[in-house]
Amino acid sequence: MPGIDECLLEAMRLPGARGAALVDWTSGLALGTVGEAPGGDHETTAAEAAELARMAAEHGTFAAGGDDLPPVEDVIISNGDSYHLLRFVDTSFDSSVFLHLWLGREEGNLALARIRLGEMAARLVLG
C-alpha cells in the first residue's frame, strides 16, 4: 500500500509533471512535497494553493448535490505554460487535504492526469 511519498512519486511519473504536494487546506501546511514548485518554494505554493482549495470547498456554489458526496472533487487552473490540478482526498477520518499536481502544458495530458490523480488519492487513503 502506498504511503504519502510513494503517492507523490507516482504522480511525478505522469507526463509533464513538474512538482506535486499533499497539502492541508485549513492550515496551508504541505505534508509532503516532491519535484519543483512555482517560484521555487513549496511552502508558499502550498499556502496559496490551500487558499484556492478552501474557497472551492467552502462555497456552496461548487458543492455536489448529494450529502454523501465530497463537496468538490478537483480544481483545475490552466495558464499559458502549465496546469495546476488540485484533487481533494476523501478520507474516512476528519481531515482537509488535497493533492496538488503541477503539470507542464506542452507535455502534460490534463484528462489523463485528472483520472490518475483521482485514483492515487483514493489509493492513498483506501489502500
Binding site: 500500500m1 502506498p2 504511503g3 504519502i4 477520518f93 481531515s95 487535504v97 489509493r123 492513498l124 487513503v125
Partner: peptide, 18 residues
C-alpha cells in the same frame, strides 16, 4: 498489521504531530 492503509495512517499521524 496492515489493518489501515499506509497513506491514511501516515496522514493521520502527521496531522496529530503538528
Amino acid at each position: 498489521s496492515g489493518v489501515l492503509p499506509t497513506g491514511a495512517l501516515e496522514l493521520c499521524h502527521l496531522d496529530a504531530v503538528y
